[in-house]
Design a protein around this nucleic acid. Structure first.
Lengths: 327, 327
DNA sequence: ATCCGAATCTGGAACGTTCCAGATTCGTTT
DNA sequence: AAACGAATCTGGAACGTTCCAGATTCGGAT
């Protein structure tokens, strides 16, 4: 190590001084720091990680960078990781299962101290494999639990119920649901909708239309949904809600005067579209923070799996109002 | 290495076989692969990076994860990196200069093979420092060039001019500009606007209003801008254009019938708001790809700095039309 | 049988750190 | 003056790979 020679001490002492360890005299320490500064020295994280067996890096695996839902979870992760001195590095799967597996592998090969998976798309085998090498916490609702992998999800049923009750509370009865794909979160939201309708004595008014996973299907589904002339719509997510808003606009239906719309996820979209969208909000920051906490718990010995379900809240904006009085 | 013992060969041969190198007999190779598979062996990227002096990791430094402009540049980076066998890892500065510097440092300590900085916010000193340790390419328009750091930007003047000429071509004369902050890109767009107006003989119609960097200022600025009753507005970016759309809606001004609006960046917003926004499109995928190319060039010896400026194009949507005929 | 070269395999050095056991220095106490 | 202990410093092992020079094996030509 050049710095050692420049400061006239051993490499061990340089290492110690740069880490701020004690047992180094003030004078020597100053000399070492000066030499390091002068030579533009930077410690090598590879070597450090190799010898220490840990890297202080928290890996975050993302399915979709462009998804504002994901990025806000990441914000929560970062905040919490910062507070614990962990550095966050992100790997991106780009909505592709194979790439997701590959990127997860890349993180593990780097010996990250833990992985937060923000996605429910990862191959369960890859996940199980990963959990054997490092703590893995998944934020999202998986098809089924993978042993060794902790999960954090929001209560989709409760969120759906809150949306429906909000509409019913305003006086709506013809409340339709624009449903999502077959994925667990979508299914749970649909179940929540049906249950809430039933418990409100509105089972006769249940009307569901599914949009596929492909974005193109959304408009058609919205059109079909509105054909039944509901006064309120609960959409599986904000993007689906946007399709409803657009379709309503195209048909000359005023929102919220003639139609109330509720979305899910409270993405930036909800605060962007006109009218601003009432939406179910998952506590994403909290979820991200909790994920880090769970990784740290694993690092300090917890071995039972933990599956946390958080309660979402409804953010009321301008897209919902009392239904127009008839006649 | 356990795999070596299990397969009854030396660690060197295991290493060779797993890398797919030749000089390993088919039988032995199969035995080694089987043993590795069985033991769940994964090579350690830290050790590999340490001995090879390169990591095959391309670091991406982001200012703002939530910014769809940034994420699409990243998509371009990823595509190009994939094709070259580089793994992309992202570090996130969260709009904070100190954190950006810190994250840049973290990437360098990991011995990444190169860094693509998607941001024009990074401390120039930190950038210069980084460039001494690895190739650094910045996507964005910096205050000034940092020696050793390549840059890729779009031609903001040309983009602004295209926007103004589009409006003028439709018959607009009262074309106002909602300008951005003092940052170089914003300034260049404003200059492009003024120049285009001048060269169209419309210097008398120039009307500029600046929004500060804080989001709250946008509405007020949009209101003030519309007070002058322009028939066309060129906004510094899509978010500013959205403020104009909202303000127009609030005042009962129909877009595009009574007011045409053009944004900049062609973010997902442009394809989300109503009416869909005409916007200047930077070739973000190309820019990302080019960034990787420039990193690779540096790795294979280029030493002169390269500063690339790409030409943006206009994407015409529903927010622009001929002005209403008077009377 | 002998030799030769190609194919296959091995052992140790190296990468840049941290860690640890011990060496050295120095001021204080006896 | 001797002894002691604390403070300060050093040297080598270790981490898990790759790399390289050389060792071993093997089939075939002489």
């Amino acid at each position: 190590m050049d710095v050692a020679a420049a400061a006239g001490v051993s490499k061990s002492l340089v290492s110690l001084a740069l880490r701020g360890g004690d047992g180094v005299s003030a004078a020597t320490s100053a000399r070492i720091l000066a030499a390091a500064e002068r030579l533009g020295y930077r410690s090598n994280a590879l070597a450090r990680g190799l010898v220490q067996g840990r890297t202080m890096i928290l890996g975050v695996l993302l399915t979709d960078l462009a998804n504002p839902y994901h990025t806000e979870v990441v914000a929560g992760v970062e905040e919490s990781a910062d507070a614990r001195g962990l550095t966050v590095l992100m790997a991106h799967g780009r909505r592709d299962r194979a790439r997701l597996t590959h990127q997860l592998d890349a993180l593990l090969q780097l010996n990250v101290d833990g992985v937060v998976v923000v996605s429910s798309w990862v191959e369960p085998d890859a996940l199980a494999d990963a959990a054997r090498r490092a703590p893995v916490v998944m934020v999202g609702r998986p098809e089924r639990f993978t042993p060794g992998v902790d999960t954090i999800a929001n209560d989709d049923r409760a969120g759906a119920e809150a949306a429906v009750r909000h509409l019913a509370g305003l006086g709506h009865e013809r409340i339709a649901h624009l449903a999502g794909s077959r994925r667990p979160a979508s299914r749970a939201r649909q179940e929540g909708y049906r249950e809430a309708m039933a418990s409100l004595g509105l089972e006769g008014r249940v009307a569901v239309r599914e949009v596929g996973d492909d974005p193109c299907g959304r408009e058609g589904a919205a059109e079909a949904l509105l054909a039944a002339r509901p006064t309120g719509v609960f959409a599986v997510n904000d993007l689906a809600a946007l399709a409803v808003l657009d379709q309503a606009h195209a048909e000359g239906i005023a929102v919220p005067d003639e139609l109330s719309v509720v979305g899910y996820d409270n993405t930036s979209l909800a605060d962007t579209v006109r009218p601003r969208l009432t939406s179910v909000d998952q506590p994403r920051l909290v979820m991200g923070g909790l994920a880090v906490e769970m990784v740290v718990e694993r690092l300090s010995g917890r071995s039972e799996d933990r599956h946390e379900v958080l309660t979402p809240s409804l953010v009321i904006r301008a897209s919902t109002a009392r239904p127009a009085t008839k006649g």
